[in-house]
Design a protein around this nucleic acid. Structure first.
Ligand code: ZN
Ligand code: ZN
Ligand code: ZN
Ligand code: ZN
Lengths: 164, 164
DNA sequence: CGTAGAATTGTTATATAATAACAGTCATCG
DNA sequence: CGATGACTGTTATTATATAACAATTCTACG
């Protein structure tokens, strides 16, 4: 099945603090191995990105930082942290929402593919076993060398569809 | 093979005026059937979108309109035209570029899937015979009902790769 | 025709997202 | 310690998109 499947959902409560602590300790390891510095700020931004399984805008994160840090940071502060986290593969950007979400399996580098519910706004990261090969095959047919894949499927998750 | 394959490319000259006139006459038919009004402005914006096979930003289109129409239009003018053209399936939006491109086959409704060369910036619309089924299958496995698909593959086209 | 109602376009202002440029601070190593 | 480079703060600006309302144009009906 799909090792990226995450249980969190407005209709599916779970121990989300576990998700957060898993993400943070995975981040420590990834940065350790890469020789990159997971500073307090970067760690805090990652934690904020992981506050839910919904993509969050940079200005949402900024707002939260401002509420807690007292001295309001400016946009570049959060964008630089997000750039770093994306470089380390700890965060994905969702182009169709101008938003960011924590990566569900940062241990190996990969493109983020997502199912995004328009109702509850939860984004589920897919494993690539089906979609990536299809993309690779099409690209090969067209003699196109792939560098980045944006795959964002919008619709309704099962819980939201049943609720409606 | 791929009926969406388009010959235009910086390295592959072709009779692009044919692409434009085909797109415009297809648009007439689509709007006719839908009972929608392809006004002069909307037609002009569609023509501008089709000035190349590269996605163009709304402000690029606006700039061109301003240069020719003397009385400079404001952003809502071009955004409303683009909204209309998207509703009629005549134009796709490329989320990863904040840009717009003419649809290669507006006769039937579909999602736009693209290969986008980072060097020459040409976007090639794919047919969906391989990628769409993979998405449908994954969504089905996850009990997710799909409403929109954003698939934008960035990389290097064959001509640009060979040139490098 | 002539005009009411709807659709389209014009216009001004504003919201939202992201980056440029440069100054200050901190970590690390000799 | 300093010197160096990495990181963060700060100000200003650019890029993308929309809200709100006025003016115009089109359409259909009497
Ligand atoms: Zn969770
Ligand atoms: Zn949902
Ligand atoms: Zn052409
Ligand atoms: Zn190219």
């Amino acid at each position: 099945m799909n090792k990226f499947v995450l249980p969190e959902h407005p209709h599916c409560p779970h121990d989300h603090s576990q998700c957060v602590s898993d993400a943070l300790s995975a981040a420590e390891q990834v940065c350790e191995r890469a020789g990159a510095r997971l500073t307090a700020l970067r760690k805090r931004v990652l934690e904020l990105v992981w506050q839910s399984h919904r993509p969050l805008g940079a200005y949402d994160l900024l707002e939260t930082l401002a509420r807690e840090d007292d001295r309001r940071p400016a946009p570049p502060t959060v964008y630089r942290a997000l750039d770093f986290l994306q470089e380390q593969g700890l965060v994905h950007r969702i182009a169709s929402l101008n938003a960011f979400i924590g990566c569900a399996s940062p241990e190996h580098t990969h493109q983020g593919h997502f199912l995004i519910c328009r109702n509850c706004r939860v984004a589920i990261e897919l494993d690539q076993s089906l979609i990536h090969p299809a993309i690779a095959k099409v690209a090969d047919q067209m003699d196109f060398s792939v560098e980045a894949e944006t795959v964002e499927i919008a619709g309704l998750c099962s819980q939201c569809r049943e609720a409606a």
